[in-house]
Write a protein that binds this DNA or RNA. Structure first.
Lengths: 110, 110
DNA sequence: ATTCTTCATAACCACTCTGTTATGGAGTGA
DNA sequence: TCACTCCATAACAGAGTGGTTATGAAGAAT
């Protein structure tokens, strides 16, 4: 993990990897479970998982013969902190980010 | 701009491009001004600018023979919104994002 | 022990990315 | 008009990316 932001933003740049993260947000998954919904081969998913692991976004452990992938959100926090530096530049003409986040939080809690 | 998140996260994955955005946050810059601080050639910077432009992060207009690059922060907002969906996953063991952003905002105002 | 399941890895291909140098176009100013 | 400045683009090289198929390692189950 030379530069964390490089790795994290790079990992997020691929739609399949973002979809994998979305599924992991619902709970840990095996490689097989992650492969099924996508129309790519299992080795392709394995490599996406390796990219996510390098970015620190996924950790893995064995369960019997399967390998469970687990979402690690901390790097997303780091990425958000970086983006927050630019908050002022879109704030001017729009609602504030904290208001936005509050509304999103309310949505999630509902 | 097929998929905005692809383009934005892809653009942010490069440290030179993030540094360019940081300089543009201080005000519009010509290509020459953006090239000087980095140890890469002018054509390389021109192509970075093109990537940023495709992602909607930079707009450009002429001033005499120069071309001014201008920061467009809206796509960063989009990226932040996407990341906010994962806020709950790092919230559990850390301060809340809105508190973090508030503290960052205070820092900027100071 | 053997077989089955799960997953990783290797080998390959096509394409993209980041950088270079060389060059030329477009606008400015003398 | 001519020269100069600023920048874009073309052509190229090397590394990386994302996909494939083929294969094998390792644990589980019979």
């Amino acid at each position: 993990m030379i530069d964390q932001l490089d790795a994290v933003f790079g990992a997020l740049a691929d739609p399949t990897r973002r979809a994998i993260l979305a599924r992991l947000a619902d709970g840990d998954r095996t490689v097989g479970e992650l492969t099924a919904p996508f129309e790519v081969s299992q080795p392709a998913i394995s490599r996406h998982l390796k990219v996510l692991e390098r970015a620190g976004l996924v950790s893995r452990n064995r369960r019997a013969t399967a390998r469970l992938s687990h979402l690690e959100a901390e790097p997303l926090r780091t990425a958000t902190e970086w983006l927050a530096r630019y908050q002022a530049f879109w704030d001017e003409s729009h609602e504030r980010l904290d208001a936005l986040l509050a509304s999103l939080t309310r949505q999630l809690e509902r």
